[in-house]
Each structure stands twice: as structure tokens, then as C-alpha cells.
Nucleic acid binder design. Structure first.
Lengths: 237, 237
DNA sequence: CCTACCGATCGGTAGG
DNA sequence: CCTACCGATCGGTAGG
């Protein structure tokens, strides 16, 4: 307790003398370093990419020593998992915003908004998106915080599928396979774009937004057509 | 020239004395170190994952000093790009094998075989697959070898789509959007599985092979339904 | 929450 | 193709 007081005093003085140079500094020392580190991680990954996300770099970005994070996180993976979890929460917000921007007039349009929101988030925050799906950095199996955030994000998709099924706009009543398919579709486009793979193919010419709309559209078309597995067996349309 | 002879003699002797311990060693010194390094990279990534692919580790795995690779590759990225390119070639082979295993009776079945082959490769060689789509490690823009290999792989999909369009089994005559959609679909499932994301959702229960078949099926269904963009606007089936 | 320190690894180069 | 070496960075811990 006594020690903590001393820190705050010391830092307040430092903050004052350097205020012009880095105003952000003082804000990080009001007792919420944990949040400050997560914000620093989000900002750093957005600026410099996943590669730059060392524990020391995040600490530097938050203006603390590289030993400080260990006060709030067991190790590097736990810190990055928390950053990734924050990313999933932002993705959920982006999806919610997409349904606000284009109020759905049907359950299927609600589903489309989920896909559009997912892609919008990935395209707007490519580096964070990358981190969110890099299990060797975040070790999701060991970090319930991250798993829960993932579950919330996935839940928005699951809910939209279930709603469409209940409304009779999609066949079946088990959302598992349709959800996997819809997720695969938008996730695939997201990573192909974010990893700049499309750019190296003839497809690079088509504007990404056009591809995004088309892919979401085709995905829903596939879901609607679901209960005809024999269609592929060669019979012409 | 003289120097090279000396190396070979020296290594031959070493190889002899250690033959029981590492038979592979001698094979790496017949003048094709480049290939040996690529093979070592493929083997190493499969065993220990993308994380383990340092230039030095690859050299170690190939039983040469860590300076040796610079004789054949400008830097680490060029080596990893060559490994990734070899991965794309193996993927093309896997796709070809899938069409052999299940000879298509229609253009659409040919397209399905491409998707199944893609997924089979990803599931069989997850770590190599990961490397193939990690541009920060391979810097594809700087390595034509890799870009060409990517183009060959993508070409198999493009060809299958075009064939289906010409046969009248798929609508339209521009393969760009259908190819992007089909690729996104299988690629999305591949990375969600390889990155073990599905495992952390309720979907983890469904066997991956079942998901793979369903996703390919639904993808093709979406392509067939393509020319009805108004279908999503709420009209019940 | 900081300073100081550890061992380890890395990419790359000199120089033969 | 090797040995020896460089500078840099890293994750983590001691110890206060």
C-alpha cells in the first residue's frame, strides 16, 4: 500500500514534466494498467502488425517497463489472448452496427448483416483480425477469456441462422452445418483478402467490396438451396 | 572448384562414420543443397509448426551450417517462400489425386473434386498449409517462384469453374466471382479447422469430414443459384 | 511497478 | 560450405 502511493507520486511528477511529449502517459497509471496494456496491444498491432507484438513492445507502447505486464498477465500468451478477446468484442460491436445501419426486413437480411459486419470489421482492422485467429500466439485453449469472447461472436451468427430457420426462410432446424458453412464463407474471403492472397491472382482486379457483397449473397443462396444434395450429380439445370 | 572437391571428400568421410546415426546426411551433399533445404523446411514445419521455421533451424535440420543457405537463398524469406511454393505444388498434386480417386461424371463433380482435394491437403498437412498463407513469412510479392506456384494452384479452380460454365452446369461466363466464392468457402473451412477454431465452438462435435462434404456441397449449390440476387429480400421460399 | 540480469535465439556477414 | 562473430531482441525472473 505504502509502496503503491510512492509509485503514483513519482509518476505524477514525471507525467507533469513530460506532458507535452506524451499526454497518454499519465492515464496509464491510475490503477488500470491491465486495460492500458490491452489498448496498447490493439494500437500496436494495428500500427505495426502481428509480428511486432512482443511483450516488451506492448509494455513500451504503454510506457511501462517490460516487467510490469507480469503483474496482470501470467505470460505473453495471456496478454495477447486478452488483446484478441478485445478484438472479438469489437467485432461483435461492428456486427451490431451493421444491423443498425441496414435494418433487416427479414431474418435472411439479418443474417446478411452479420456477414457484412464480419467482413467490414476484418477489412477495417486487418491486423487485429489476424491476431484473433492466430492460436499459436494466443493459446485459446488455455484462456477462457478469449474463448468466451469467441463464443459471443459466434453466437451472433448462430442466432441469425436460428432465426431464419424458425421464420421458414432457411430449411432445417439444426444450425450447426449452415453456421459452419456461412462462417467458412465470410471467414475465407476475409483471410484471403487480409493476407493479400487475392491480390496475387487475376481476381485482384475486382473491388473487394463487390466481392464481399457477392460472397455473402452466394452464401445465403447456398443455404437456401440446402436440401438438395443430389443436385451436384450431373443433372443439368 | 578445387575447394568444392575438398568439401565433398570431407563430408563423405563424416557421412561414413555417422551413417548409422543419420543416413540422410550424405544425400544432402551431392550438389543439391537447395532442394535439401526445401525438403528440410517441409519436414520441419510438419513436425514442429510454423513457429519453428527459423533459418537456422532449417539449416540444422538439413545438417548444414546456418550460413550455408545463403549460398542458395538471399535471405530467410526467400527460403520460406521456396518451401511454401513446394507446398502449393503438393496441393496441386493432391487436387489431381482427388479427381483420380473420384472420376467426375460432370463438370460440377470435377469442381467438387477440386474442393475436396483442397481440403484433404489442408487437413493432411496443416502446418505446411499454414505457412503457404502466411505472407509476412514468405513475402510473396517479392518472390515470383511462390506467386507462380500459387497461380498454378488457383488455376485448377479457375479451370474447373470455366468448364462448368461452358457445360451449362453453372450460370454466367465470367469465372472471377464464382471462383472467389468457391475458394473463400473451402479456404475458410480449412483455416477454421487448421487453426482449431471450430473446436472451441458448439460445432466441434460434428466430424470434420462431414463438415467438409457439406461445405463443398453448399458452395456448389450457391453457385448454381447465382443469378437470383433478389432472393434474399425476404420472400419465403 | 522498476532496474538489472539471465540464457537463448535469431538473421546476417566476414573471411577464408 | 564452415567457423566465428556482431548486434539486437526476446521472455522471464530476482529482488526490492
Amino acid at each position: 500500500m505504502v509502496r503503491r502511493q510512492l509509485y503514483i507520486v513519482k509518476i505524477a511528477v514525471m507525467g507533469k514534466s513530460r506532458r507535452a511529449k506524451s499526454r497518454r502517459k499519465r492515464a496509464y497509471h491510475h490503477g488500470d494498467l491491465r486495460t492500458a496494456l490491452i489498448d496498447a496491444g490493439l494500437d500496436l498491432v494495428a500500427r505495426r502488425g502481428v509480428q511486432a507484438l512482443s511483450l516488451r513492445a506492448v509494455a513500451r507502447h504503454a510506457q511501462v517497463s517490460h516487467a510490469a505486464p507480469y503483474h496482470h498477465f501470467a505470460d505473453k500468451a495471456e496478454l495477447l489472448a486478452a488483446v484478441a478477446a478485445a478484438g472479438f468484442d469489437r467485432m461483435v460491436a461492428a456486427i451490431a452496427q451493421a444491423t443498425v445501419d441496414h435494418p433487416p426486413r427479414s431474418a435472411l437480411e439479418g443474417l446478411r448483416a452479420v456477414g457484412v459486419g464480419y467482413l467490414r470489421f476484418a477489412f477495417t482492422h486487418p491486423a487485429i483480425f489476424r491476431l484473433m485467429f492466430r492460436p499459436e500466439l494466443t493459446r485459446p485453449a488455455a484462456h477462457p477469456v478469449l474463448q468466451n469472447a469467441e463464443a459471443r461472436a459466434f453466437g451472433t451468427l448462430l442466432t441469425a441462422i436460428r432465426a431464419a430457420q424458425r421464420a421458414g426462410e432457411l430449411p432445417g432446424n439444426d444450425p450447426a452445418v449452415p453456421a459452419t458453412f456461412a462462417w467458412s464463407t465470410v471467414h475465407g474471403l476475409a483471410v484471403l483478402h487480409v493476407d493479400q492472397v487475392l491480390r496475387e491472382t487475376p481476381l485482384g482486379a475486382v473491388p473487394i467490396q463487390e466481392l464481399a457483397d457477392a460472397v455473402v449473397q452466394l452464401s445465403i443462396a447456398g443455404l437456401q438451396a440446402a436440401p438438395r444434395p443430389e443436385a451436384v450429380n450431373g443433372a443439368p439445370r
